[in-house]
Nucleic acid binder design. Sequence first.
DNA 1: TAGATTGTTAATCGATTAACAATC
DNA 2: TAGATTGTTAATCGATTAACAATC
Lengths: 224, 224
Amino acid sequence: MAVIRRLPRYYQYLNRLQKKGIQKISSTELARMMGLTASQIRQDLNSFGAYGQQGYGYNVVDLRFEIQNLLGLSENYNCIIVGAGHLGHAVSHYERFAREGIYITAMFDVDTELVGKNVGHLPVYHVDDMGKYVKKHKVDIAILCVPADVAQGISNLLVGCGVKAILNFSAFDLNVPEDIFVENINIIDSMFTLTYRIGEKKRHIEEDLNESMFEEEEDVTTLF
Amino acid sequence: MAVIRRLPRYYQYLNRLQKKGIQKISSTELARMMGLTASQIRQDLNSFGAYGQQGYGYNVVDLRFEIQNLLGLSENYNCIIVGAGHLGHAVSHYERFAREGIYITAMFDVDTELVGKNVGHLPVYHVDDMGKYVKKHKVDIAILCVPADVAQGISNLLVGCGVKAILNFSAFDLNVPEDIFVENINIIDSMFTLTYRIGEKKRHIEEDLNESMFEEEEDVTTLF
DNA sequence: TAGATTGTTAATCGATTAACAATC
DNA sequence: TAGATTGTTAATCGATTAACAATC
């Protein structure tokens, strides 16, 4: 799992290298670029198959292609956004998804102000019609942009009608059967790791200050 | 670091328990709720200080308060959003931040259509005025909602004028001095871990099919 | 062939889990 | 006191790093 979470980043960097027209890359060079160790990169890539060539390095185009395959990006995916609020709205504008074969085809909401209208190029339907839509269009992935208090209910609906995976932006830990994949993006929690680190740094500085004050005191006693 | 990433979740669950009026919680019970082991919870909490009481468990109110402090949430933070596009717009509507003392006070963009206007209750200023604003208002945290190709440039500006931490929504790995904290939220990458898992499952199913076909063949040979 | 760099094994490190003594 | 549950040490597990033989 630790390796899998690095795969999209490998893919990102290889895309850029390819765009720059760079043909080969060594684990050492890629490590330097990505802030990893060369050893880890070789270990990671090798765990999926020997994509490199001794004495040469990795062929950028080939490796990019292999990782694209590993990430399942040679397939197409149907996708919906549930929750047509600001966040759903924002995600609907990510053009990158379509370029990787991930097609967002509709949005769902309960707000009658929104239902029937279009958000960007996407139609907004009522959540009541979601089950039928998901089955008819064989939706693979749902992007959940609803408030925490309705997230579990919506999730149950989605699972019930055959969605395979959920990208969950709600601040609620969904309970799903183990064959359904959930990826959580929790903006609040991410922010809290920042406030933690700012606070921790502050505590350290205060500690150091106290220590140096203590040292001064010791110096004073030494005087007597 | 692994523990720190769990802290916001502990905080979340303890908030809910407190709201429900539950007064004490054992590591076993909390573990069940959160899908962790009781051992891990005791280890985690103990690494910050002995907040529990043997034979009783953890006092919900006290523990919640301790974790709130650990997360630095007894302090206030000034925060800006850079990039007044859909995503910046969406984040500006997160009311939870203000309730935890994280005050978003302004947005910045280069789009002259947006500059001077208001997005929600937030004024949108030009990025050229960002440095002055950050210094004047002692901005601690910047939420970066800009395209990948300008992210590093904006990051340099922010670091240069004294921002302590960046919540980075751009699909670009920022290069910052080591005393600046960056938390990445990469929606595309998160999506790719889902497509990976869907693809992996598919591969497993195909494998199993091949195996059972192979077994059948063996059965046939046994017949002769 | 010599140089470079992978693939792979072994060593290290860190995080999780198990176990139980301490103690409320 | 007995029961419950933490705090803490030791054992296990997994992930990262180091090292080097294989080989292009």
